[in-house]
Amino acid sequence: MGIVGIDHVQLAMPAGGEDKAVAFYSGVLGISQVAKPMHLAKRGGCWFEDGPLKVHLGVEADFRPARKAHPALLVDGLGALVERLHGAGVDVVVDEPLEGYDRVYANDPFGNRLELLEPLG
């Protein structure tokens, strides 16, 4: 018995933010939107998945963005993604180097922090 992995990451979003979430997570980051199960869809929010990558956004009534806690998403082609983020008006922050990775931080449209990592070599 033991924990063997992470199935998905859930981030919070304010009510009514689904269009912004789709524009960012699907449009800018390129993660496909998938339908939520019908019994969960009535709660709002949206899900984005691509193979083993699963980022779910759920509506939180008293929403506050996660400014420190964050998912770290592995990227192939970080430079091109940074250009897309800049083109979409998203601020990108380069932080201290992390051995073995190029990395930056960006916020989603709701202020949730995302770390974007590309392995070197």
Rank of each mutant, 00 (worst) to 15 (best):
F110D: 14
V9E: 05
V90I: 15
D91T: 13
E60S: 07
A106C: 05
F48H: 00
A72S: 07
Q10Y: 15
G27F: 04
A61K: 09
A80L: 13
V59A: 08
A41P: 02
G45S: 06
G45F: 00
V75K: 01
V55R: 01
L29F: 10
K42Y: 12
E115W: 10
L74Y: 15
P109M: 06
A15H: 07
Q33A: 02
K20L: 04
K36H: 05
M13S: 04
A15C: 05
L116D: 01
A23S: 12
G51W: 13
A72I: 11
D76Q: 04
V22P: 00
S32F: 06
G17I: 09
P71R: 08
A41E: 12
L29Y: 01
G77Y: 10
K54N: 12
P109L: 03
A69Q: 05
P71Y: 08
D50Q: 13
N112K: 09
S32P: 04
V104R: 02
V92K: 09
A106D: 01
G45W: 00
D95A: 13
E60F: 12
N112W: 01
Q33C: 03
H39M: 10
A12G: 15
V59E: 03
G77N: 13
C46D: 03
G17P: 00
Y101D: 03
L116H: 02
E49G: 00
A69W: 07
S26F: 01
V55D: 00
